[in-house]
Design a protein around this nucleic acid. Structure first.
Lengths: 197, 197
DNA sequence: GTTTTTATACTGACCAGTCAGTTTAGAAGG
DNA sequence: CCTTCTAAACTGACTGGTCAGTATAAAAAC
């Protein structure tokens, strides 16, 4: 099953993902060339096209991979918890994820609210999946009376997602000297206050 | 001073700004061509280069113009108000600005947290100027005891700026059907709760 | 008569994608 | 074991198109 061949190939794809995510986070999708990605990954240009149909497809698979991971961690974080604790756990999971996959978070923040790009549809779909996990928690909280009844589920969920992203990335980019634990405390404080019935 | 010639030229520059901001908000800086900008502005390509040194300079002047406007509105909004009202006024001013210059806000959100771009330095500086207005208000609030003493001024200010941006643009892009007044209420509610001593 | 804009053509760099050829992992045969 | 053999994985020079920026002559605006 995992013979040397597939392991080697998987390793190459992984290296290409890492290279692509770093470069695209810094420069954006269009400004990043396939030659750059290949060079950074220590691989020939042809290898990129052997492993991915096109630059766009590489990026789409990267998005799928990254957001898929985030969604899975969201799911694991809320598992079995009552609404209010689940909400705090979601914030912690998001921050933790951003800390580990800093470049990907930066990339998401930059590309999330674009329109008129080829991969827009993919990104929109994936965003929906991640936010749905948050929405389920918020919905349960509103239903059980743990959260304010007038809370708009859809809005609150996407706001929560976006706020975590922007606050964390802002901290990482403009105040990297500060420990990320502070962001977490600040965000948890905000969410706790907002969630008061 | 403002003879017909300079007025005409100013008008051309304005049209180019509008065209550029719309296209760059949709596609990003790199994916937007000078030919596109000229066509959208209804102007010959040569005119772009008659009025701006280069594509990058056009973009930098656009950033300066847009953020300068925002900063001025921040200044006007807080003028003479006590800290807590000033904070609410800032949120209102930011939202109001985003509603009016939607494309520019989208562009800012996409380009603000990038690194390694030529105009990065310019953007960083301008961002600092806008946030400084918020910071002054927060600082005054902390000094007068209107805001929690443990509030980190720098963090709170940039978080406030970023949160307004992301929540508003998210709303505009993903839930444009909803009235923007709702965003304002939601944000004011959050800020009010967080600002509680 | 000076400034600004137009229309069009051009250049040179850059870049996504291709392809003929090389290397490598590991199966098959001895 | 050690040698073919084969298909998968990888290479890098090359191509065709795109695009920032330039050039210029003539027209329009003031």
């Amino acid at each position: 099953m995992t013979d040397g061949r597939t392991r080697r190939r998987e390793d190459t794809r992984q290296r290409l993902f890492v290279a692509a995510v770093d470069l695209i986070a810094e420069q954006g999708f269009s400004a990043t060339t396939v030659d750059d990605i290949a060079a950074r990954a220590g691989v020939a240009k042809g290898t990129v096209y052997y492993n991915f149909e096109s630059k766009t497809v590489l990026f789409e698979e990267l998005l799928r991979h990254g957001i898929g991971l985030l969604t899975a961690e969201f799911r694991a974080a809320v598992d079995g918890l009552p609404p209010r604790e689940a909400l705090a756990a979601l914030v912690r999971a998001e921050l933790d994820y951003i800390r580990r996959y800093r470049a990907f978070a930066q990339l998401l923040l930059s590309e999330m609210w674009r329109t008129n790009r080829e991969w827009q549809q993919t990104l929109r779909l994936l965003r929906g999946e991640a936010i749905e996990v948050i929405a389920e928690t918020v919905r349960a909280g509103v239903a059980s009376g743990d959260l304010p009844a007038d809370l708009d589920v859809r809005t609150a969920s996407s706001a929560l997602f976006g706020v975590g992203l922007v606050v964390a990335v802002d901290w990482l980019v403009f105040q990297p000297d500060r420990p990320i634990a502070d962001v977490q405390d600040a965000l948890l404080g905000i969410v706790r206050r907002v969630a008061q019935t």
